[in-house]
């Protein structure tokens, strides 16, 4: 099954870090990426720019409304994500606990609906 790990953190905390601390934090993520890939569970993962770059779009009755800012304002914001492919929730939760994001923020784990192709693969398992 595929899961999305969504990293929520307070960007102010990151901004307060000294350069060597930033380097250490980034090093943690690089090591985590390597570990995910070595375990062959990595599907995708990216770091997002700050919510100051966010725009929220909604189309109602054919009219497009664009709003400045993220969908929901909160102190902790979505700062990045991973998509991993693991056998079950327990495995996903274990990877989430290893994610540096779980230490400087929180990681929300969500199951991903299988697309038609992955569903077929599933039958053969």
């Amino acid at each position: 099954m595929q899961y999305m790990l969504m990293i929520y953190a307070d960007p102010a905390g990151f901004a307060r870090l000294k350069p060597e601390e930033v380097e250490r934090a980034m090093g943690g993520y690089f090591a985590y990426n390597d570990a995910l890939k070595a375990a062959k569970v990595y599907v995708a993962g990216e770091r997002l720019k700050s919510t100051s770059t966010a725009s929220t779009v909604k189309v109602t009755e054919g009219k497009t409304k664009v709003q400045d800012g993220p969908f929901a304002e909160s102190k902790e914001e979505l700062g990045g994500y991973y998509i991993i492919d693991v056998p079950d929730l327990d495995a996903a939760l274990k990877w989430a606990a290893k994610c540096p994001g779980a230490h400087h923020g929180s990681v929300e784990v969500r199951a991903i609906w299988p697309s038609e192709s992955t569903a077929k693969l599933d039958y053969r398992k």
Binding site: M1, Y3, P87, D88, L89, D90, A92, A111
Partner: peptide, 10 residues
Amino acid sequence: KQAGIAFKIP
């Protein structure tokens, strides 16, 4: 079912 909680003994 949807979140993939496995039936297994830890």
